[in-house]
Write a protein that binds this DNA or RNA. Structure first.
Length: 238
DNA sequence: GCGACAG
DNA sequence: ATCTTGTCGC
């Protein structure tokens, strides 16, 4: 039992008994619901970046969300949600630790995004349910994962140019791409979450790059989530 | 048994 | 992820 069922936040995992084995079983079941086809609004109106950070030595989990206009990349809204940390980090079970806070952040938005980009793996996961895929199935929203390092799978180094990518395979399956988002920077690990195809996931990340290693949605959320003394207020541009 | 292991 | 300054390289 890694998660105290009496704590807050776990209504996000209906049917979970709080054990590691139970979490893995639930992942396998939810993974079967993942849609790896492009089923999202065309053209994309908005895109949101999500990331999680910690404060108070890890006792508090802080999730940040930044909603951007998909065409101009201007920030429309940003919010920070806090929740007492209820589970330790267990490789492969990241979503059970961070998803509750992410869902709270999502609820703070005045409107759901057309696409959610989450810091972490999509289907490039042992049971094909990284946090981005879990987020997608749990919310029904199109999603994809952008991680800074690989969890599972093998790949050859992608070319040096921005946009160069190489396939990541795991147990004989294509699960994502190692993407060179910026010259002389380590590649990003991109994989579909839900309602987005493998190739489209990589193309979308490239589309939202703005000169930094991380695509704008995730980069901004990253900055909000890890910044000390981050405010919890929303920011409305004018 | 040994090594790997998102954040 | 987080604890933490300067430093090397492009």
């Amino acid at each position: 039992m890694v998660a105290p069922s009496s704590t807050h936040g776990f209504e996000a995992f209906p049917g979970w008994d709080g054990s590691v084995a139970g979490a893995r079983t639930l992942q396998a079941q939810l993974a079967a619901q993942v849609v790896l086809e492009d089923v999202f609004p065309r053209p994309l109106r908005t895109v949101a970046g999500f990331d999680v950070g910690f404060e108070d030595q890890g006792d508090i989990t802080r999730a940040a969300v930044v909603l951007l206009d998909a065409e101009s990349l201007q920030t429309l809204e940003s919010h920070v949600a806090r929740l007492p940390t209820a589970m330790p980090y267990v490789p492969g079970l990241l979503s059970f630790r961070e998803l509750p806070a992410l869902l709270l952040a999502l609820e703070m938005l005045s409107q759901p995004p057309d696409l959610a980009m989450v810091d972490g793996q999509g289907i490039a996961h042992p049971r094909r349910l990284g946090i981005a895929a879990h987020f997608g199935v749990a919310t029904g929203l199109p999603s994809l994962g952008v991680a800074k390092s690989v969890l599972v799978g093998d790949f050859d180094a992608p070319g040096p140019a921005r946009g160069d990518r190489s396939p990541i395979t795991h147990r004989g399956e294509l699960v994502g791409f190692a993407l060179r988002s910026k010259l002389r920077c380590n590649p990003l690990i991109v994989s579909p979450g839900h309602r987005v195809s493998l190739t489209t996931a990589a193309e979308l990340v490239v589309r939202f790059l703005a000169g930094y290693r991380l695509p704008e949605p995730t980069r901004l959320a990253d900055r909000l989530a890890s910044r000390r003394e981050a405010g919890r207020s929303s920011t409305l541009p004018r």
